[in-house]
């Protein structure tokens, strides 16, 4: 095996980052996707575009702006300093914030599609059966949108695992803090350790394939993977 200690640490860090980001994104993305699926507000177009922006922008652009805003004079940096958390750039939590922005559309769009696919009728039925809005969301929307939640979680997780550009810009290359798998592969190649790069890359390919298998398994009846570009 061509594994080195640094490889396992990188895999562990990637899994930790992706887990934290996925959980936080589901918490934030669910109300956002619900609002997008129900609203008739004119703001919908603008918010949809902002949510989809990371799909189009080069990760380095996102990373660059995040780096600036996380600096001592940037808005994120000032907030974190005011809260006594210190700087965000080149830290794990800085990566979490960056990854959340980077992976946002991969969570919000499948959820929004799943919510829209439910249609108005089940929601109205729940209302006529005395379900309050919150009750209705838990008892009708969540179970009917279950494939959407699974897709959102898997895509959000997988996309965060595969992130490189944003990490490089705002995280750098610090072992156990910001050195995730994609960075580690880059390090191996830079050091001409092709065997190490080969093994890690193979793991990534298998992981990506597994991810897509899960998604297609749960989305048999829905078109594609619930993303709109």
């Amino acid at each position: 095996m061509g594994f080195m200690d640094g490889d396992l640490a990188a895999i562990w860090l990637s899994l930790k980052l992706a887990s934290v980001v996925t959980i936080l994104l589901l918490l934030i993305g669910t109300p956002l996707a619900w609002w997008l699926s129900q609203t008739t507000s004119r703001l919908k177009v603008l918010v949809s575009a902002l949510v989809a922006l990371p799909l189009i922008l080069p990760p380095t652009v996102i990373g660059f702006y995040l780096l600036i805003s996380m600096g001592p004079n940037g808005p994120l940096g000032q907030v974190s300093h005011a809260l006594g958390l210190g700087g965000l750039a080149f830290t794990f939590w800085g990566l979490v914030i960056g990854s959340m922005i980077y992976s946002l559309p991969f969570v919000v769009q499948p959820l929004q599609n799943a919510f829209e696919a439910i249609g108005k009728r089940p929601l109205e039925i729940a209302y006529t059966l005395r379900a309050t809005p919150w009750d209705r969301f838990i008892s009708v929307v969540v179970p009917l949108a279950k494939p959407g939640f699974i897709t959102a979680a898997v895509l959000g997780f997988a996309h965060t695992i595969g992130e490189f550009g944003v990490v490089l810009m705002i995280g750098g290359n610090i072992p156990d803090e910001t050195r995730v798998v994609s960075i580690q592969i880059y390090n191996h190649v830079e050091a001409l350790n092709y065997t190490g790069a080969y093994w890690l890359s193979a793991i990534m390919v298998l992981f990506a394939l597994l991810t897509l298998l899960i998604i297609y398994r749960y989305q048999q009846r829905q078109s594609a993977i619930g993303m709109r570009f």
Binding site: E124, Y127, T128, A131, R136
Partner: peptide, 27 residues
Amino acid sequence: PYKRAIGYIFQEASLFTHLTAGDNLQY
């Protein structure tokens, strides 16, 4: 609507598809 004591019967089948007939009644 959820505070009005009404029963509403829709034109087309309107059962919750994720619940059995019995669980629709329990709902």
